[in-house]
Design a protein around this nucleic acid. Sequence first.
RNA 1: GGCGGCGUGGCCGAGUGGUUUAGGCAGGGGCCUGCAAAGCCCCGUACCCGGGUUCGAUUCCCGGCGCCGCCUCCA
Length: 469
Amino acid sequence: MNDPAEQAGIRLFDSASGAVRPLRRREPGRVSMYVCGPTVYDVPHLGHGRFSLVFDVLRRYLRFSGLEVHYVSNITDVDDKILARAAAEGRSPQAVAEEFEAIWWSVMDALGVERPDDVPHATAWVPAMVEMVQELVARGVAYETDDGVYLDVGQVPGYGLLALQPLDTLRAGARVVSTDAKRSPHDFALWKKAADGHSWPSPWGPGRPGWHTECVVMSLGLLGEGFDLHGGGQDLRFPHHENERAQAVAAGRAFAGHWVHNGFVEAGGEKMSKSLGNFTSLTELLEQADPRAFRLLVLRSHYRRGIEVSPATVADAGDALARLDALARRFPDAAGQGRQITSVSELRAESEAEAATFVERMDDDLDTPGALAAVFDIVRRAHGAADAGEVADADRLARCAVSLCQAMGLELHGDALDTPDAAAAELVTRRDDARAKRDWPLADALRAQLEESGWVVEDSPAGTRLRRA
RNA sequence: GGCGGCGUGGCCGAGUGGUUUAGGCAGGGGCCUGCAAAGCCCCGUACCCGGGUUCGAUUCCCGGCGCCGCCUCCA
């Protein structure tokens, strides 16, 4: 029991075994996780937002459970798409990668996604990648052709594990370019020969690493053999993760202990398009909606299922968020800075039953919808207690709800961010005055004026309160 | 062709072999309020279609229909 999470004992679906099983740790009390990051050749799309949020929530929850988390997520800054864009726009691949990486981080910050502990860039790891490819060639599991170095997947035991089907049943053809010197259509490039300015020296001449080579080298390099968890979007399961795993296995290294994949973002059967009013990118969504509404939308469905992200579903989540914010507004004390509880053990000391329900839901394959339902139940009870004058209980429940939201990365806003401007402040003063004199027509007229300028007016024992509509 | 997933009340979205319901949003009624807002209480008798197993299936099995993802670089 010296591993705090023995008590929490989170169970997660593992794509390699096809079952929900306990997340085992290489070292007690610590979790090492690697999540495939973006290739920076364009602005982030909605799917990037979902995976970032899903793994941010997992990371935060593990920490809330009392575990120390080492979170690594890469930036792929070597890629054909980056080169294509650079060529099309007449600038360097570095310039393209830098531009979109900067956008990536600004979007992550807006979403409240915490920065990874380590952010390896592929370009900084090329020598290590060359070493691994050399090792694979030396072991006789990789071979050189005219255009690169390939892994002979037929020699890798268990290839097809993450594809969930055996190698010989995988269709070979549909999207494969054509016959080349590869021994099998499934063999993939560890190293690509190229002498186009964006290349590095290697024993096979100038070139650049294959995509799968990047992640396997950087994850093992930073987290070491047999790290705990490897995550990413569903589409990466095969071939990307399969091929990372194949390289590790072929090189005789223990790889990830647990594979976690999140479901896709869908757009209601319709293609995402502006004419339908759907969001076309994450940046566009963030221009139009509260980032927290998007996080709540993600939390509201199970991470392995698809979710629909549209203006309507985001707005709906925004309305639900308003209920949560209303709690923070009513209990500014409980929601105040520094008053949240940041670990499950502390929370148990104060709110055993509520903490237990939340933990039970989260431990069950990160059941955020269930956890959220538990939070809403606590919210309702906090208000009920306050209405009944049970101040201590109300405060405790409110603090619990706010803390649990926090544990999932959801910051609740009370009044703090809605500071009225001078004009509004004056109207408030005049209205309080009118109300004191019981001049209702005047008070109502002033309220109407405030509402016209975008404020929601709420009366409270402390006088008129405003918040943004 | 192979593999995987999904189809739940007006909408979003969980879950389960049967006694009382996920949850949220929207809607209706009531309470509170000078009127509101916020909040509290109450309400809607849902589970793609057809078979089968069962005392009983939305939940298990079989077959359809529909939607989606993967099968070489897309999170």
